[in-house]
Nucleic acid binder design. Structure first.
Lengths: 212, 212
DNA sequence: ACCTGAACACCGTTCAAGT
DNA sequence: ACCTGAACACCGTTCAAGT
């Protein structure tokens, strides 16, 4: 019988928010989202469960910090794309890849509730789109759609029964890319329509901060 | 002081899977996903918690049954659309509306794991698309993309902090519709390309900035 | 400042026992 | 067949008390 019920008390180095989130991802990958409890996380860190409450308000905040990770990773991972369309596509792929690295990551993001002011993150991530020629409202809307699509897709991709069933009927990576491509292509067409109405003077403003 | 901690034992009529799922939705709408426990569900039904296990294997199965509801509702709600494109759009809207009726519905779907053979549901829902002229592989892929997008969108729409933040920057319903429209439009373009191979339609990349 | 021990109010689930 | 009572092994969270 495999008696692997106990995890070794990792490190007795220090205990701060960063190491806690790290260990939480380790536990997540080992036990899955259902197995991620503050108690096993604490023993994984060689500490008692209430100790975590000194660094973290509660479990919800911890989940929120974990979820925020993916957004940051994906935001950094779209380096040299110039048009807002290619940026959107790159962001979607980067976000999916980031989530696929950890078991149950999409479900975790779906559970998580953004505790930090989301305005900061949203604007930071929409900024390059605006710099690439989009107005702010559209940038936010398109960005939200790409994030929603990616999150929803990976939820199903990481659901084992769904994965098994879908994977034998179609290539998941290719289907994801197809949907993402289609959506952004539709955005491009939409923008092209509305800007040709009044002689597109909108595009090609380099680094416009667009202050109101 | 609101002392509403106890729910009235609803009906002592009968106890079968249908009434259990009904009551589960009632509890969900009152207490939210975190408050949905088998114990409060049982008291809501005027019964003890272990009684539920006669009709339902476990909580996961119950969640699965609840999630399956939305797919069925949405599948019935796209009546008279003729093209597969309009069917896809109608399905997305119907699915969103069905989920918006219940608190935390999208998160519930993200948590749920399809216990019934998903082939049945998937094919039943993709069938009209195939009948409307799509090949099966594309029908499944497009359908999956629409479902993923809708699920992900409503996850954020039903997240209270996200809702508050996004709602003041953009019209959520309109932005959802925009993304859905864009995606399906992209699908249509893709199909048009591959079917008219020797027609000289060379739009491989989405020409982000339409010239002029 | 940072962590432990002990406790509280909950969970999901099992199972013998009732009817 | 259908449900109860009691129990098991867990939860998240609080809080006095230790260092």
């Amino acid at each position: 019988m495999s008696g692997a019920r106990k995890l070794p008390p990792r490190e007795t180095a220090k205990l701060d928010r960063t190491t806690i989130v790290e260990a939480a991802f380790a536990v997540l990958s080992e036990k899955g989202l259902d197995g991620l409890s503050l108690r096993v996380l604490a023993t994984h860190l060689g500490v008692q469960a209430p100790a975590l409450y000194w660094h973290v308000r509660n479990k919800a905040e911890l989940i929120g910090m974990m979820a925020a990770t993916f957004g940051e990773v994906a935001a950094r991972a779209e380096p040299g794309e110039k048009t807002w369309a290619s940026r959107l596509i790159a962001y979607g792929h980067a976000l999916r890849q980031a989530m696929l690295l950890h078991r149950d990551a999409a479900r975790l993001c779906a559970i998580a509730r953004p505790i930090e002011p989301p305005a900061e993150n949203a604007n930071r991530v929409a900024a390059p789109l605006i710099a690439a020629g989009l107005d702010q409202k559209r940038a936010l809307s398109y960005q939200a759609s790409v994030i929603a699509y990616t999150l929803g897709w990976v939820v199903y991709e990481q659901s084992q029964p769904m994965h098994e069933h879908l994977a034998q009927m179609l290539d998941l990576a290719e289907s994801f890319a197809s949907g993402l491509r289609a959506m952004v292509r539709g955005f491009v067409a939409e923008v092209a329509e509305t800007t040709t109405k009044h002689r597109g003077q909108q595009r090609q403003r380099p680094q416009a901060k667009s202050r109101d």
